[in-house]
Write a protein that binds this DNA or RNA. Structure first.
Lengths: 329, 329
DNA sequence: AGTAGAAATGTTAGCGATATCATTGCGCTC
DNA sequence: GAGCGCAATGATATCGCTAACATTTCTACT
């Protein structure tokens, strides 16, 4: 920067100002500075800048995974909301593991992000302490934690699943099955399952048709294997709800491969409304949960908190969901 | 850090050393320092650290998009390769637009990454200049640029597509159709198309059955619409190759919806070997291109260049691909 | 015990920008 | 033309850490 300054014949401070929108630099000077910047190929050093200004321009976001999952849409929503704000997203993958999340939170905080977006409400106590101490706005997404850290942008996975059960019951289905992953690591998966069980029970129907298979996030293939087990154990099952569209799709395809007609022989529904569900044949019943919007709103919430000097008033934004009935049920 | 130092009764420098693996600090001292760190809830400030040490610990990577695409696997490969290296990935989405890429490159360089991974070989001249000047290792991925900037990890999209055409021709297909996006922005898509055209022509077959539809990356739905146009214009088409598995899947499902048998009435093949292709019914013929491996190898190449103080010897790593013949052809 | 060499720790000086306050210059009013 | 206010620019002092070199302490061997 000093070099640019010398080249133009101004002070480094003026060069620094020329890079900012709001600073008062005459048009003439700014033009000459920018010419010199181009000529010299100078690129601003933001690490130095952030040390001095105490604004790093980073926003951290942690998602369980990004491959073939709803979270890639959420990440996209965050990225889009951050566009033209000068903020840069630091993305991390937790693999659904709270201790990996803890590590990542520490790694992120070392970069002094101005805000952080998390997925879910399950965190280690050390993670909570670090976040507390960091004094930056936090947004938890994708569910409604019992004890939110700060802001929340999400919905009740249990209630969403419950709604689907009730709509399908209204269509006349009585023998409900459920396919999900094995562990409780995926809290959203667990919530969906308990929403399913609670509602099926409330309707006075059998609750034992549950297949737990595969480590979350459960794959398409595992969905296919799971429905085979389901139909072997409970051949008279009328409708199977799956923890995600991906497993539901695997189940659907496996049924077709075996000559089972969907929905006549067995109905199938997913969760998440992935693109695939509106394209596959038969088109799949699912729950649309606005993954993109969750990311976008979380980021907007964060930006808002940053502007208003976040008074730490935790604020819960409920995102919408709706059952999308299609041909598979 | 000064506070921690005072608390333990050592100098700040010793605290700094305690955070590094290789530094010489007695076990006793390090333990006491770490205890104080925990007690005080101190978190290292890496922006300050990198300013001083001139090592930011950032690696930048730019991909066209991350949603439902091969690139999410590539990003995952990079992330995995970077694990435990203390390096943090800065990810950006270019939306297949060279000028957005240029902007992102500048934004990334302001963070002083130690290396950068790009997708493809199409860059604006200003982007090339900035990269040149930055003096950091660059890895271009996913294709083989004519004039590589530095390192390359990729494969020839044209040859891969060509191989698929030849294998299908060997199975007896003669009337080949192609479905792809409309613009040349997606250079890999264009290369696949020209690989298709060149090979079909070399085999002495018709090359006019080409549907261009939708802005890349073309969606599942657009694939479905495209195959309808294809069959309306050229009803006797025997096999349709698609620019990606997603569009191929859309085409496949649309055929099923219309009662067309695949592959008896029309055969379909994709590109990329997404999970969906091995699960759908009928399972889809495609080309496996090791998306994850491209990311992983690109990152490894970069790490290697960083260790060996990169002598700027551009180095081309060819990644493998193979035709996966399945039930759809 | 004496000493060399290694290990552990301390001191000082930046890294490259920006916050803050000071200064200069200009146009305008009365 | 003195005085005021505002816009443009400059000087200085950090921001929080680590590189580099200096110093002290320990270890091992003669």
């Amino acid at each position: 920067m000093a070099e640019v300054a010398k080249h133009v014949g101004v002070s480094a401070m003026t060069v620094s100002r020329a890079f900012r929108q709001d600073a008062s630099v005459s048009e003439e000077t700014r033009r000459r500075i920018m010419d010199a910047v181009d000529a010299l190929g100078y690129v601003l050093d933001q690490s130095a800048g952030s040390l001095s200004s105490r604004r790093t321009g980073f926003i951290a976001a942690l998602v369980p995974s990004i491959n073939n999952s709803n979270f890639s849409d959420t990440a996209r929503g965050i990225t889009d909301a951050l566009e033209n704000t000068g903020l840069q997203l630091l993305l991390g993958y937790t693999d659904y593991a709270p201790d990996k999340e803890e590590q990542l939170i520490e790694a992120m905080l070392r970069r002094r992000p101005e805000g952080i977006i998390l997925t879910g409400g399950q965190h280690t106590s050390r993670a909570r302490r670090m976040l507390e101490k960091a004094g930056i706005p936090v947004v938890e997404t994708w569910e409604i934690p019992e004890t939110p850290i700060n802001h929340v942008v999400g919905f009740s996975n249990g209630e969403a699943m419950s709604l689907l059960v009730r709509e399908l019951a209204a269509k006349g289905y009585r023998k409900f099955g459920y396919i999900g992953g094995t562990t409780a690591r995926d809290t959203r998966g667990s919530q969906r399952r308990s929403g399913f069980l609670k509602t099926v029970e409330a309707l006075g129907l059998e609750t034992d048709r549950v297949i737990s298979f595969g480590v979350p996030p459960i794959t398409m293939e595992q969905g296919g294997q799971a429905i085979i087990s389901m139909l072997e154990r409970w051949p008279d099952t009328e409708v199977v709800l799956c923890v995600s569209d991906l497993s539901a799709f695997g189940a659907l395809m496996e049924c077709q491969r075996r000559g089972l007609r969907v929905p006549q022989d067995i109905a199938i529904a997913g969760f998440g409304d992935y693109e695939i569900s509106s394209i596959c044949h038969p088109r799949m019943t699912t729950i649309n949960v606005d993954c993109y919007g969750i990311g976008k709103q979380a980021a907007v919430r964060l930006l808002d908190a940053l502007q208003n000097d976040d008074e730490r008033a935790g604020d819960i934004t409920l995102t919408g969901y709706r059952v999308v009935l299609r041909e598979s049920t």
